[in-house]
Design a protein around this nucleic acid. Sequence first.
DNA 1: TATTTGAGTGTACGCACGTTCACTCAACCG
DNA 2: CGGTTGAGTGAACGTGCGTACACTCAAATA
Lengths: 210, 210
Amino acid sequence: MTESAQTASRQAQKERTRQLILDAALELSQTQGFAQISLRQVARHAGIVPTAFYRHFDSMDELGLALVEQSFSTLRRMIREAQRDPKVFDNIIDAAAQVLVETVKQSKAHFAFVARERVGGSEAVRRAIQHELDLFVSELAVVLARLPNIETWSSDDVQMVSRLFVRNMVSNAEEVVDMPDHRPDLEERIKEGARRQMRLIVIGFHDWKS
Amino acid sequence: MTESAQTASRQAQKERTRQLILDAALELSQTQGFAQISLRQVARHAGIVPTAFYRHFDSMDELGLALVEQSFSTLRRMIREAQRDPKVFDNIIDAAAQVLVETVKQSKAHFAFVARERVGGSEAVRRAIQHELDLFVSELAVVLARLPNIETWSSDDVQMVSRLFVRNMVSNAEEVVDMPDHRPDLEERIKEGARRQMRLIVIGFHDWKS
DNA sequence: TATTTGAGTGTACGCACGTTCACTCAACCG
DNA sequence: CGGTTGAGTGAACGTGCGTACACTCAAATA
């Protein structure tokens, strides 16, 4: 009998259930926000009994932290893939806007989770997200520092501009998350807005401190 | 006997209790977020019995909407006052950064409420806040449109730049809210960051579409 | 002054919650 | 193969919740 979950090593099965819990929590978060869903709701939605939850996470807070980790690793993977696309060298702004919207659309649930819990979540979850975003700002600053025009800036300035970009990325991601499905007009509008904002900032680069 | 709440017209007393409820909810929101506090917690903190809550609000959602209204009317009043300050004409950017930080510090609770519930709140509360912010963007756009350099822009461009400012205002307000009390160094840092961001955007203005 | 009104009380309800505990039974391992 | 391990079960608990209902008693009104 080649039943799906029938023949599975013990740890593989455990991993599968763990993922079911993560998926359930992510889906439930979309309508009500992670901070207001209950352990029992998650268990019910994952098809397990409430007590079984504890075999995988000590508390809802730990589940939240695991979701933060998963969300950011998804984001990093997507950015790494996007960087391999040759189009980004032609027009970095249009490419960035395109990648932003596409990436967020593709894993809406993760972005919605981060956007919401960044400010609305529990203390622990908020701190974890803030930490990841700070890391992100620093990573971007390294990339920016290598661009022409910027290589002479003070590292403080570069850090500031990096924060500006990440902040706008988060805001735009929020907009895409709130966007109803299948509305290419709205999507184009957000993309155009992101493009303009980036152009504005980049023009500011040019004359900065001159 | 000139007891405080002893002699009070009926509606004045009702108004006072209503305000006690609003204050209680606002204070409790600071630690846990409005979306996760209960009707009973609010009543307890306001010094009334849970059922008395219903004499003032039909539900926690209605209380949330009342808090949104109160928060934004506070904000508008402060901006109106700030506009009367002659210093804003000397250096609009430094003044804006100063006003932003001072205003947020002064009514931290209201800003914290808006910043959190904007994304983490219930559907109804989120929509109300988004609506108020949209109004704000439009109001600011009218002010901006009268500035030199900008009067020739398309209204779409002005709207975009207005969104950029409001978005950054929200982000900076978030930072001030998260700031621990009595840390003038951090405060100065945020102010300096806000100043730089605004300068960058303004420099962008200058060369826009040229 | 006699009557009405309505803000605030106190009890009681059914419900969902997080967590406990003793349990089953299949995969694992010596 | 026989004993051990541990993911998942199911019943039970105490707690806090939102809300209903009948109430009090002072201010408002006629």
